[in-house]
Design a protein around this nucleic acid. Structure first.
Ligand SMILES: [Mn+2]
Ligand SMILES: [Mn+2]
Ligand SMILES: [Zn+2]
Ligand SMILES: [Zn+2]
Lengths: 150, 150
DNA sequence: GTATAATTGATTTTGAATTTCAAAATCAAA
DNA sequence: TTTGATTTTGAAATTCAAAATCAATTATAC
């Protein structure tokens, strides 16, 4: 956390921006929450602590946090932009359940390798990628099987 | 095309829906366009032929076309829903250029296999997946290198 | 101190996705 | 044919997250 804060401060300095108490608070709450939050969701959490904070500030600060490399956008299939931790977290992909919304974070190094190879073949310079697999999770499959009505 | 039309008609019948000239036209224009179009883009194309058609009809028909399995949603990184052909086209992933928007359609069977294995390990029942790799395409890399100002 | 610039947050605007609803079209009886 | 129920259409309105605006506030520089 402290390390991340320093990272943020460095980023702000580079951009000639200041670390304000609002920005520090948004970062702090974001880091404490190990979820994949929309701007609105994070805003609602912070509002409880500081009812005077504005949505616009949360919106803008999350953007800065992303630009600083601390967060990254996540897409869980709904059409909202979600943010998840990036700094200090390894890259991962998502298995997303279309029944319950639950998601599993996964990494398969072989897949990553093959992706890179694929891009090299196309002389394509990779910046980032996103792999989302939609389906039904183990728990929901069990539920689906259970109620055998007969 | 004819085969696809029949598929669409069958789907409509199953849903107790009718094949109207508007629906046929939307499908026809969509199939003729080998692109990844938003509702609005397709609407603008169709409007030229039939100025009386409504956006809502294009919107609704594209939805039906997707439900019929003829189209699938594509995500090229802008925040708009795009549709691309599915029926008669093999599954593929996208390399998307963040400079020019150009995209390359690719398949790497090994990646697909590993994805399936990964899901099996998690007892996760795959329905579909989406792999998008963002980066800089060969053409843009060349352009970036060229203007060596000194 | 004052000038200058950045930040904030209520509010407004945007834009794509979706819905609404009255008019028009379809279609199967009478 | 009429009729009447049902579906479809398209202009317009609504929704809703994302983004922009702007006057007031705050921080920093001089
Ligand atoms: Mn994640
Ligand atoms: Mn494609
Ligand atoms: Zn589930
Ligand atoms: Zn390019």
């Amino acid at each position: 956390m402290d390390k991340t804060l320093n990272l943020f401060i460095d980023f702000l300095k580079k951009q000639n921006l200041k670390l304000t108490k609002q920005r520090e608070e948004v970062l702090g709450v974001f880091l404490k929450t190990e979820k994949h939050l929309t701007v609105e969701e994070l805003y609602n959490i912070i509002k409880k602590k500081d009812p005077h904070i504005g949505q616009a500030t949360v919106f803008r600060t999350l953007k800065l946090i992303r630009e600083a490399g601390i967060a990254t956008e996540a897409d869980l299939g709904d059409k909202k932009i979600r943010y998840e931790h990036r700094y200090g977290h390894k890259h991962h992909d998502h298995l997303i359940c279309i029944k319950c919304g639950r998601f599993i974070e996964v990494v398969e190094p072989e897949i990553e390798k093959l992706q890179n190879k694929l891009c090299r073949d196309f002389r394509f310079l990779v910046e980032r990628h996103r792999l989302e697999i939609f389906g039904v999770c183990q728990q929901c499959r069990r539920k689906d099987r259970r109620p055998k009505k007969r």
